[in-house]
Design a protein around this nucleic acid. Structure first.
Lengths: 195, 195
DNA sequence: CGCGACGTTGATTTGCCTCAACGATTGTGG
DNA sequence: CCACAATCGTTGAGGCAAATCAACGTCGCG
């Protein structure tokens, strides 16, 4: 049941049987279906979710109605709106299930309780957020300094599995370009490759 | 000497006299001059720095030689390359002093020592990184969904003091546009305002 | 079957960049 | 103290990456 998340946690911190037990007692397991939403804009995010199986995406919608995808989350990834969760303020993003998923969540009170009972978890979540920050920084740099073609190449390179699993227009929205333009880029790629 | 940083820290966690003493013993104070570099691309970042006075900027240079500014750091801000620091790997960014500054730094070993002796600091730095992540996320959204004019307006709104203190071409590099284009935007702003 | 989701293609437009030239201001060495 | 170099902002001409809009083909599915 908790095997996957325990594995994940043990990469960062070492826990006793006792501590593990406390941890588990504060978690919830949920099954969620494709096309349902874990979070909508305006709601206060009351969970951090660990994906056991399935696939979800977080995105926001700009004033023109276009989506930009912040994250695809598959097995062994965390997803949440940290700003909304940690400051308990309305969210600016949506989190939607793309493929039926099994997730493990922890709510705000339980997380604070966890920190109180097992302070080691402060370290786990610090490392986790730190890594997210590093990744987002990379992505920010790429989005301002690289043309779409190179960003697409990097994506294929970094997430080969995802590029099979996720529809092309979603990838475009992740890369920050229109689906039409991604199509044109791909055409160009294959064209120049076979020559 | 440590007044500013103590104030900052006490907003997040409460420390005893004893703990405060340990904290101070692990810090270094430095004066750094305009145009000097705290960090260059390729070096391993061995500090997290708290700005007591002065102003520094962190930026990266893309393959065409253009700079993009990640952060301006003034009084009471932290600056570092977290990815490089926390994983002790070569940095991809530069950190340069814009105005003579007094800074307080902590190195990798001292930070780990601090965590060992006063675990509360795990919490402080978790909150700190969490806030950075929230800010960067905002900025990322803006950079893909808003035109330059609105991003400039937001900047003026959010950092009124900085916009006085920092040359215009640096602001352009922060916004991710060319200095020439910012000049044209400004012209447009004043033009439409006075009509 | 027919509908909706997805990908492709072309025509047109646009936001922003690049390059080059030109004042204004500041700083600096002779 | 002047002269000259840097640094900074402005303006214009021309160009390009990517968006928008519209139309069309193709699946898979209720």
């Amino acid at each position: 049941m908790f095997q996957e998340i325990d594995n994940y946690v043990s990469q960062c911190i070492h826990l006793t049987q006792e501590e593990l037990h406390i941890f588990h007692s504060l978690l919830n397991v949920r099954e969620v279906r494709k096309k349902s939403f874990l979070l909508k804009e305006g709601e206060i995010c009351n969970f951090e979710a660990f994906i056991v199986s399935g696939c979800v995406r977080s995105f926001f919608i700009d004033e023109n109605g276009y989506e930009t995808i912040l994250q695809f989350a598959v097995e062994n990834w965390w997803v949440s709106d940290i700003a909304s969760f940690s400051e308990q303020k309305p969210s600016t993003i949506f989190i939607e299930v793309m493929d039926d998923a099994r997730i493990i969540t922890i709510d705000y009170q339980s997380k604070e309780e966890l920190f109180r009972q097992v302070p080691k978890f402060e370290r786990l979540f610090r490392l986790l957020v730190q890594r997210s920050l590093g990744n987002l920084q990379q992505r920010f740099f790429a989005s301002v300094s690289q043309p779409a073609l190179e960003r697409y190449r990097s994506f294929l390179d970094k997430y080969p599995a995802l590029s099979q699993r996720v529809p092309q227009n979603q990838i475009a929205r992740y890369l920050g370009i229109s689906p039409e333009f991604l199509s044109k880029i791909r055409k160009e790629m294959f064209h120049t490759k076979n020559k």
